[in-house]
């Protein structure tokens, strides 16, 4: 019995085993599609924003189906904030490197061959940076909101306890 099997059999957290099994098979496809949309953003429809939100949706579906424990062990909020900040810095750095050729955000790398994956200079690099940033920040917001939900119920309990004492 591997680790995922244990998560699926666990009845306490998350949704029913049917949902968990389906999510287990769909997860890989979602992540591959998100990575494809980010990497091929300069050739096909998509780009950093759409791909990043798709990747974040993959993590969110993991959280909703399996509960918080599994998602936090795969991609914790600390890593989310680190990736968020560093991706923003990477994007800014790409912009500043453009100064070596003349102006801000100049496309200094070679254009490459048409319709090739490694073409269009700095655009794929920018796409990857933006994709990482959007993934991390959207997932961090979702984590903050969902973790906070526990506190609302807890606070309401505290409030009721106080009123009972009075």
């Amino acid at each position: 019995m591997d680790k995922m099997e244990k998560y699926i059999r666990d009845g306490k957290s998350g949704m029913t085993p049917i949902v968990k099994t389906v999510v287990r098979f769909v997860m890989g496809i979602i992540f591959i599609f998100g990575a494809y949309v980010v990497l091929y953003g300069h050739l096909t429809p998509g780009g950093g924003f759409a791909g990043g939100v798709i990747l974040a949706c993959g993590f969110i579906i993991l959280t909703l189906a399996f509960g918080k424990g599994l998602a936090l062990s795969k991609f914790s909020d600390k890593w989310a904030s680190i990736i968020d900040n560093s991706a923003a810095l990477i994007f800014l750095t790409i912009g500043f490197i453009g100064f070596s050729g003349g102006y801000f955000f100049m496309n200094i790398l070679g254009k490459g061959k048409e319709f090739a994956l490694f073409s269009a200079g700095t655009i794929p690099l920018c796409n990857i940076a933006i994709g990482l940033k959007v993934t991390a920040s959207v997932f961090a917001v979702f984590l903050t909101l969902s973790i906070f939900g526990r506190f609302v119920s807890k606070l309401v309990d505290d409030y009721e306890d106080d009123t009972e004492k009075e």
Binding site: H42, L43, G47, N107, K111, S119, A120, G121, I123
Partner: peptide, 14 residues
């Protein structure tokens, strides 16, 4: 000018 075939991405990132 940019090498990107998707012109929306070219406008957005270049």
């Amino acid at each position: 000018e940019t090498g990107a075939m998707n012109i929306v991405t070219a406008v957005l990132l270049d």
